[in-house]
Amino acid sequence: MELRIFTEPQQGATYDQLLAVARCTEDAGYGAFFRSDHYLKMGSVSGDPGPTDAWTTLAGLARDTSRIRLGTLMTAATFRLPGPLAITVAQVDQMSGGRVELGIGTGWYAEEHAAYGIPFPPLAERFDRLEEQLAVITGLWTTPRGEKFSYDGRYYPVTDSPALPKPVQAPRPPILIGGMGRKRTPQLTARYADEFNLPFASVADSAAQFERVRAACAEIGRDPAKLCWSNALVLCCGRDDAEVARRAEAIGRDPEELRANGMAGTPAEIVDKIGRYAEIGAQRIYLQVLDLADLDHIELVAAEVMPKI
């Protein structure tokens, strides 16, 4: 089981704060630093000093870290055109020496689209656009050098693109798709993804959705063992109940609710819960760290949980 750190900077974070978390993540031995791709806060927090752009952040971290992998959970397909996004991700992959992963989804947060003037079509159209985005991005990355790429899309037609620049990773950076959609999410995962991720889902719900994705893979003749399976859960770890309660209070959550729905408790409790996700096939856990100033939290899990899984 691999542990990765996952952050939500739209809740309020500067680049320097994210860099401190990323360097702590790297020094502590985690596999990756991921961040959300949002432009508006959620809940009652102030959101100050305002959002940071996900791919600008990852470009900086590409130069300011050396080992950890870097990616998004999840970039909204509504935010960027597929051609420019393919260029951006390829460039950040070059800047990092081949450490980038692209998590991408339909986009779901209507308020942030309204707040920043981003069109927000109905869900069916967003899935159609995501499918075309995936076709264009992967097509641009995998077109051999010296050849051109075209795509007859409804939303994103591409004509005679030189399909440059190329990412460092061949044939392309890993693509993550996730969510609880029962039909199109499994279909797109089977066709395009290297990893399937479920955010904030119970063991039972995860098992059911993993089976839907496995069935979608079988329908197109893809071996589901070629996919990586992962979950993302809120982290709230403490050496004892008092420390768990303190960390829960710091993020405005109830410790018992977090024990039920997140990755919370003492290191022993967290090792046990990770084991339950491993039993249904999860291979990675993204630990959502909400208090970015609490680097001891990250170090505690690295010291007390990571060696036991």
Rank of each mutant, 00 (worst) to 15 (best):
Q91C: 12
V301C: 07
A225C: 09
A278M: 04
Y156N: 02
W108C: 02
G107Q: 03
A248N: 09
R222T: 07
A204Q: 03
E257P: 05
S150D: 10
D152C: 07
G105N: 01
L134F: 02
P51L: 10
C228E: 14
T75E: 04
I68W: 05
D48G: 12
W55N: 02
D128G: 04
V289R: 07
G47C: 11
A207K: 02
G179Q: 00
V45D: 09
V89M: 03
K226R: 15
L85E: 00
S96D: 01
L290D: 15
E26Y: 10
A245E: 15
L130Q: 02
V21Q: 12
A225S: 13
E219K: 12
L140R: 06
D48W: 13
Y39P: 07
I5Y: 11
P121R: 00
T14E: 09
A170G: 10
E211R: 03
R253L: 14
Y156G: 01
T52H: 10
A232Y: 06
L18F: 07
D16T: 08
V158S: 08
Q11V: 10
M42A: 15
H113A: 15
L102W: 00
R247C: 06
G178I: 01
P171S: 12
A28T: 07
D291P: 11
M95A: 14
E257M: 14
S202R: 02
T7A: 14
A216W: 01
E304G: 05
R214V: 01
V234D: 10
L85G: 00
I104R: 01
G262L: 06
K308G: 07
I87E: 15
Y30N: 12
A215M: 09
E219G: 08
M74L: 15
A163Y: 04
Q288A: 13
V301R: 07
T138G: 05
D64V: 04
F6A: 13
Y192R: 01
A124N: 14
E304D: 11
M1H: 11
Y109H: 14
H113E: 11
D16Y: 08
G83Y: 11
G12E: 07
Q187M: 15
E211K: 06
P51C: 10
S44F: 13
C236E: 10
K226M: 14
